[in-house]
Amino acid sequence: SHFELRVGTITLHFDNISEELAEELEKLAKNGVHADEIRRWWEEWLK
């Protein structure tokens, strides 16, 4: 499923992401983690 995450002024787009993972990314964003860090985390997870 597709997921969009708003982090400050940036909107990150994720394809084929589980609800659980989407929730984890939302938690990171709410805790003030920068969009670049979240994207890096996601790319690492995909490997």
Rank of each mutant, 00 (worst) to 15 (best):
W42T: 04
F3T: 03
I38H: 01
D36W: 07
E43I: 10
T11A: 03
L21Q: 10
E20Q: 10
E23C: 07
E4G: 00
K27V: 09
L5N: 01
T9H: 13
W45L: 08
E26I: 15
I38A: 03
N16A: 05
T11S: 06
L28W: 09
N31V: 08
E37Y: 09
H13T: 12
A29M: 06
A29H: 04
A35R: 02
L21C: 08
L46S: 11
W45V: 08
S18F: 03
H2D: 08
L21V: 14
W42N: 01
E24I: 13
W41A: 12
G8R: 01
E4A: 01
V33I: 11
E43A: 09
L12I: 06
H34A: 14
E20M: 06
E26F: 11
K47E: 13
L12F: 08
W45P: 00
L28P: 00
E37H: 07
V33Q: 08
V7P: 01
F14H: 00
H2Q: 08
K47I: 13
V33F: 12
R6V: 15
N31F: 10
A35E: 07
G32A: 08
L28E: 01
H13N: 07
I38N: 00
L21D: 06
K30M: 13
T11G: 01
A29D: 02
R6D: 12
N16M: 06
R39P: 01
E24F: 15
I38C: 02
D36Q: 07
W45Q: 10
F3R: 01
S1Y: 13
L12V: 05
R40Q: 10
V7R: 00
V7Y: 03
D36T: 08
S1Q: 13
K27R: 11
I17Y: 03
L46Q: 12
I17L: 05
H13Q: 08
E43H: 10
W45E: 05
L46N: 11
H34L: 10
L46R: 06
A35G: 04
H34N: 13
E37D: 13
K30F: 13
F3E: 02
D36A: 10
L28Q: 09
L21F: 06
F14R: 00
I10A: 07
R40Y: 08
E26D: 12
L5A: 00
E19D: 13
W42G: 04
T11F: 04
R6I: 15
E4Q: 05
A22S: 06
I17Q: 01
G8P: 01
V7W: 05
E43D: 14
N16F: 09
A22H: 05
F3A: 01
L5C: 01
W42A: 14
F14N: 00
E26R: 13
E26S: 12
H34R: 11
I10V: 13
E44W: 07
T9C: 08
K30A: 14
L12D: 00
